[in-house]
Design a protein around this nucleic acid. Structure first.
Lengths: 147, 147
DNA sequence: TTAATTGCAAATGTTTTGCATTGGA
DNA sequence: TCCAATGCAAAACATTTGCAATTAA
């Protein structure tokens, strides 16, 4: 949190209460993939006067500073969460098509695949996004007991 | 094309000229990742009376019938293209951060990774999406010559 | 003090929907 | 014939922007 404040300061941005509250909501919800609207609702509990536009502007700022990630699971809404410290790449996601749950995979499973892409396609990889769609463990168990 | 018409028929949908033209545009632009607006513009050349809503409805229909893929490269616009016949999974995409080009990777590079996910997370994988962000070969060469 | 930041409302851009009309089966 | 499909305009969304008022540094 303090590192982030320093980073804002160093980049010449002001530390407003709106930004502080938005940051704390993001910190309390690491890896929860909240939408801007979700974040707005939670921020309003602590700071009711805030406007949605300010939340969007803060999220954009944090994204530009590479403090948060922005993901997009195909439902037309961007979702945000704190970057794992030191992560050079996005996490992988497992999305359950049954219950909608999003599971975070922190390992980098793509090292070998990146090597293939760089070699076969002469494509210099900077980052990647990997999402699996399928059925989570709990839903598999539920389905079995229903049959 | 005829297979698709049959499929529409079997599912009880009518074969309208609007749908035929939209299909032919999609067929002529396999793997080009056109947006609904792109498709609308091209369809209008052959069928000027068509409305944008009809294009959206046709795309949704073809997507539900699993005839086309719908992808989303983070610019807020859905992009559509024909599924490779027999493909059980989405292709991988390489997106050049410099020129915006999208390169299609038809190989399935994720077999081993899926095995790991299924084992370690007990997650039954049905499909996957893999996107690499980086610099394409041409842009790498261009950058070198600029330095 | 003063330029950055905010809140609001209006604008934007994509996609969806209501409804009267049309047309494929 | 008759219900599915269409075109249009309006609505519904997420997100961005203009601008006057406010505020952190």
């Amino acid at each position: 949190m303090n590192t982030v404040k320093e980073q804002l300061h160093k980049s010449g941005y002001k530390l407003t209460p709106q930004r502080e509250v938005t940051l704390s909501v993001l910190l309390e919800n690491k890896s929860k993939h909240l939408s801007a609207e979700d974040i707005f609702q939670r921020v309003k509990e602590q700071y009711p006067e805030i406007g949605l536009a300010t939340v969007y502007r803060t999220l954009e700022l944090l994204y530009d500073l590479k403090i948060i990630d922005k993901a997009n699971f195909g439902d037309g809404v961007s979702r945000y969460d704190f970057k794992q410290s030191g992560a050079k790449h996005y996490n992988h996601h497992l999305i359950c098509v049954n219950c909608g749950k999003v599971i975070e995979v922190e390992d980098d499973l793509l090292y070998d695949v990146e090597k293939i892409v760089e070699h076969d396609y002469k494509f210099k990889v900077l980052n990647h996004r990997l999402t699996f769609h399928g059925v989570c463990r709990e839903c598999q168990l539920k389905d079995e007991s229903n049959e």
